[in-house]
Amino acid sequence: MTQTDATAAKTSAQGPVLVTGGTGKTGRRVVARLRELGVETRAASRSGETRFDWADRTTWQAALDGAAAVYIVPLDTSPSPTTAFIEQAVASGVRRLVLLSARGVDVRGYFGPGHEVSGPHGEGERAVRASGVAWTILRPGWFAQNFSEGVFLDGVREGELALPTGDGKAAFIDADDIADVAVAALTEDGHAGQEYGLSGPRALGIADVLDEIAKETGKRAAYVSVDTAAFRAGLVAQGFTDEEASLWADALIPITTSREAPVLDGVRRALGREPRDFADFVRDAAARGVWG
Rank of each mutant, 00 (worst) to 15 (best):
G21I: 02
Q238G: 13
I206E: 03
D189K: 07
G114F: 10
L99P: 02
G292L: 12
T82W: 03
G114I: 08
R108Q: 11
E116R: 14
D227P: 05
A102I: 15
S199T: 14
R220V: 04
L235W: 07
L37Q: 11
D106H: 12
E188L: 07
W54L: 10
R288F: 06
D174A: 09
G200R: 04
A229L: 14
A192C: 04
A179H: 00
V19R: 02
L18Q: 06
F147K: 00
F143I: 06
A221N: 05
E212L: 09
D76R: 08
P164K: 13
A249W: 11
V226P: 03
T257W: 01
P81K: 06
G112E: 14
E40S: 14
T187Y: 04
V133M: 13
A222I: 13
L97Q: 07
A229I: 04
K25Y: 12
S45V: 01
S92R: 15
A67Q: 13
A179E: 03
S101P: 06
L97S: 06
A287N: 02
A67H: 00
L161W: 01
A286Y: 05
V70T: 07
G168V: 04
G266V: 05
P275S: 08
G112W: 07
R129Q: 12
V98C: 05
R51T: 14
R157V: 09
L247V: 14
A222W: 08
L264M: 15
S12W: 00
N146L: 02
A134P: 00
T187D: 01
G48H: 12
G38A: 12
G93L: 06
